Simulated assay, not measured.
Amino acid sequence: MRISTSGTRRWTLAAALCGVLITGCSSGGGDGGEAKPHAKPAAEPKPLAETALHPLLLTQADLGTGYVHLQEKPGGDKFDDVAVQGCPALEKLGQSGEEKMFAAKAETSFTYKRDATLGEELHSDRPSVLSGKLRQLFGAYTSCPTYTMTAGTTPIKVKVTKSATPDLGDEQFAYTSTMELPSGAQVLKTMAVRKGSVAVMLAGAPALVDRHMKTAVGKLPARG
C-alpha cells in the first residue's frame, strides 16, 4: 500500500512506512490442498477488474468528519530506499515488487485530524489465490517479533505482534507494528479481511483500522 507522504512532519515517515508494512513485497502462489480423487473442483468466482474495485473504496462520506483524502501523485516513489534486515521471510518477499501480487488492485488513503493516517487497499483474485497469498504475506510479517527497517539511511527498529480480528468475511488477518522513529514510537495496525474474491486491507492508526473495517467490508459485493 502506498500512502502519500505529504503533510506534517509528525507522521510523514510513519505514513510512508505504513505502505511498506502491508503489500510492500510480493509472494508466490497460494497454499495447495490435497485433491479428492473423484471430486470435480467447483468453479471459483473470477476476479473483479480494477474499475469495479474503485467504487468499493472508502470515501470521506463513509468515514465522517475530520478525514482528508490524500491525492496520489503519478510517478511517485515506490519505496525503493526502504529495506528490511533481520527477518529472512520478509527479506525473501522483498526481492520482487508488489504490483502483480493479485489480479487487480485499487487504493486510497486519508489523514485524520492531521496527525493520523488510514490507508486502504482492495485486491481481487480467485478466492484460493487470495487466501493463499494473504496467509503467506501475513505469515511473513508475523514470523519475526523484531527486525530492522532502513528508510534511506535511517535504521528503524520494528516490533510486531499478532492482533485479534473481527468476525467478518471469510478470512481475517491482522498484526500491529511498533516502530521506533527519530520522533518517537509510532504504532500501526494492518488488517485484512477476505470476502469471496475480494480482500480489503486497512493500515494506519489502530483505532482507525478497528473503527472502519466493518464499513469497508460492508461495501464489498456479496460472495459469488
Rank of each mutant, 00 (worst) to 15 (best):
Ser6Arg: 09
Thr8Arg: 09
Trp11Leu: 07
Ala16Ile: 01
Ile22Asp: 04
Thr23Ile: 14
Gly24Lys: 02
Cys25Lys: 01
Ser27Tyr: 04
Gly28Pro: 09
Glu34Ala: 07
Glu34Phe: 00
Lys36Asn: 09
Lys40Met: 10
Glu44Asn: 05
Pro47Gly: 10
Pro47Val: 09
Leu48His: 05
Ala49Ser: 12
His54Lys: 13
Pro55Leu: 13
Leu56Lys: 14
Leu57Ile: 12
Ala61Arg: 15
Gly66Leu: 06
Gly66Met: 06
Tyr67Leu: 07
Lys78Ile: 11
Asp80Trp: 07
Ala83Cys: 06
Val84His: 00
Pro88Gly: 06
Ala89Tyr: 08
Glu91Tyr: 13
Gly94Gln: 14
Glu99Gly: 14
Ala104Pro: 06
Ala104His: 12
Lys105His: 15
Asp115Thr: 11
His123Asp: 10
Ser124Gln: 08
Arg126Val: 06
Leu130Lys: 00
Ser131Met: 09
Leu137His: 01
Gly139Ser: 15
Gly139Glu: 07
Ala140Thr: 10
Cys144Ile: 13
Thr146His: 14
Thr146Ile: 04
Thr150Leu: 12
Thr150Arg: 12
Val158Asp: 01
Leu168Asp: 14
Glu171Thr: 09
Ala174Leu: 03
Tyr175Met: 05
Thr176His: 04
Thr176Asp: 15
Thr178Leu: 08
Met179Phe: 09
Glu180Pro: 03
Glu180Arg: 15
Ala185Lys: 14
Leu188Gly: 01
Leu188Glu: 07
Thr190Cys: 11
Val193Lys: 02
Gly196Lys: 06
Ser197Ala: 15
Leu202Val: 12
Ala205Pro: 01
Asp210Thr: 14
Lys214Tyr: 04
Ala216Phe: 00
Val217Pro: 02
Val217Cys: 06
Pro221Ser: 12
